[in-house]
Design a protein around this nucleic acid. Structure first.
Length: 424
RNA sequence: CGGGGUGUAGUUCAUCGGCAGAACGUCCGGUUUGGGACCGGAAAGUAGGAGGUUCAAUUCCUCUCACCCCGACCA
């Protein structure tokens, strides 16, 4: 992508009222734009990051045998009445409910348990049809009393939600573990250290749930973590107190702020019972479905990543989620020889399938281009300039200057060496 | 939903009863070209909205809307 053709460009000044780092850097870098409180446009750069995250999630969930699909966001009241959640006061606080012009009562999706269960009821008849593992990426609407912290808590956000239905508690629990491991791999691929904690099921369930918490000072949750092992517990439900010894390894327990990045639920048979969804077992006996749901806040993760991976100049994306892999900076492109060289490098990288953002702007100073590169935070910066181009510099061989975002070290390599480096 | 803060040029902010200001950005011309470079010129405003006080309101008062922060709540 040519930077001259991207929309929008970076912003130098910090937006008014933007206190949180993710708000500042994502807006300044041209990743997102605020429509209203808790509601954001994911701009082209931001959408690329979302797509990277989704790809990682998709890859790992597919390993568990889950199937991707897409469900509607506009839900009729009657399906929600079957579990009683439409009228639950706690649900009413966060679910957008309204009537359409014909007087039909509708809600905007804040989750999909009822919708999935309704779907399962239509197609699941026998134990032979189970298990079912289905997921989608879509928008969730939650009427937050207070949207805040940039993209971390919105009224409308992107989520991956997975639902599974099973013949037995054991089968559900076994899959729950499988998803948990997939989630840990997902966060690890994004270079996030996620702690698994027992948690409260809130308006979803009374039964066992677990959260994936990423330690960060901006987090709204407080968790207790062990400094010696991976033990962690949410203070909402924890038996352990700060200052006590870790129940697992006797290490020091301390309290830290953290952000909930994922939450997985064993929902039991409650939803199936309430909605009359059953299957016939080998003895031709009616059995209730065992149900679970599993969520990852995708757009929130974009913010979490920025909160964790940044410095005073901008974002430092982990390579797995970066919008582009290379930020090619052309300096002094007014000089035809340098421009030709930069264009050639851009073309060759593209031909190799490398995702590259090429700053091809004419008449923009080096300082500005470097500042933009630091702000945008692409992992590898490659500079072509009079200094690196042999026809101008008198060097025997054309070199490219490469520098990793977040490091000071600068290296000169040939294009061939760069391509070889990327292969790895 | 309770408490607090802020709304003035595209953006960030000054001004504070008496003709609407700066910086950055943008546009034009020129000089520059390795860390947001410089010179000259230009365009750009219903001071969030409504009402009130006053000879006069961006400025004071009331209401309202929006955004941000703290709390409550929550994935």
């Amino acid at each position: 992508m040519r930077y001259s053709q991207t929309f929008p460009k970076t912003i130098k000044q910090v937006p008014a009222g933007a206190d949180s780092i993710n708000h500042q850097l994502l807006v300044r870098g041209g990743y997102m734009d605020q429509l209203m409180a808790g509601s954001w446009t994911l701009l082209p750069l931001g959408w690329r990051v979302v797509s990277k995250i989704n790809d990682i999630i998709r890859e790992e969930l597919n390993v568990t045998g889950a199937l991707e699909m897409l469900m509607p966001l506009l839900h009729p009241r009657d399906i929600w009445d079957q579990t009683g959640r439409w009228s639950d006061p706690d649900v009413k606080e966060i679910m957008y409910q309204f009537k359409d012009i014909r007087g039909k009562e509708l809600g905007l999706s804040f989750t999909h348990e009822e919708i999935v269960m309704n779907l399962l009821g239509k197609y699941i008849h026998s134990y032979k049809d189970l298990p079912v593992k289905i997921y989608h990426f879509s928008t969730k609407f939650r009427n937050e009393p207070r949207a805040k912290s940039g993209i971390l808590r919105g009224r409308e956000f992107l989520m991956k939600d997975l639902y599974s239905a099973h013949v037995s508690k054991e089968d559900l629990q076994q899959y729950f573990q499988q998803v948990k491991e997939a989630y840990l791999r997902i966060f690890k691929k994004m270079e996030l250290e996620a702690r698994v904690v027992d948690a409260s099921g809130g308006i979803f369930t009374d039964s066992f749930t677990q959260e994936f918490q990423v330690v960060s000072p901006v987090g709204e949750d407080n968790i207790l973590i062990c400094e010696s092992c991976d033990f962690a517990a949410n203070i909402e439900v924890s038996q352990v107190k700060e200052g006590e010894k870790c129940p697992r390894c006797k290490g020091e327990i301390k309290m830290v702020n953290s952000i909930e990045a994922g939450h997985i639920f064993t929902l039991g048979t409650k939803y199936a019972k309430n909605m009359g969804v059953f299957f016939l077992d080998e003895q031709n006996k009616k059995q209730d479905l065992w149900f679970g749901s599993y969520g990852i806040g995708v757009s929130r993760l974009v913010g979490v990543l920025v909160e964790i991976f940044h410095d005073d100049k901008g974002i430092i994306w982990p390579e797995s989620v970066a919008p582009y892999i290379i930020h090619l900076v052309g300096l002094g492109l007014e000089e035809q020889g340098v421009k030709n060289k930069a264009e050639e490098v851009y073309q060759k990288l593209q031909d190799k399938g490398v995702e590259v953002l090429y700053d091809d702007r004419i008449g923009v100073s080096a300082g500005e281009k470097f500042a933009d590169a630091d702000l945008i935070g692409i992992p590898l910066r490659v500079v072509v300039s009079r200094k690196t181009h042999s026809a101008s510099s008198g060097q025997a061989e054309d070199k490219l200057e490469i520098k990793r975002r977040g490091e000071e070290k600068v290296e000169l390599v040939t294009l061939e060496e760069l391509l070889k480096e990327i292969e790895k």
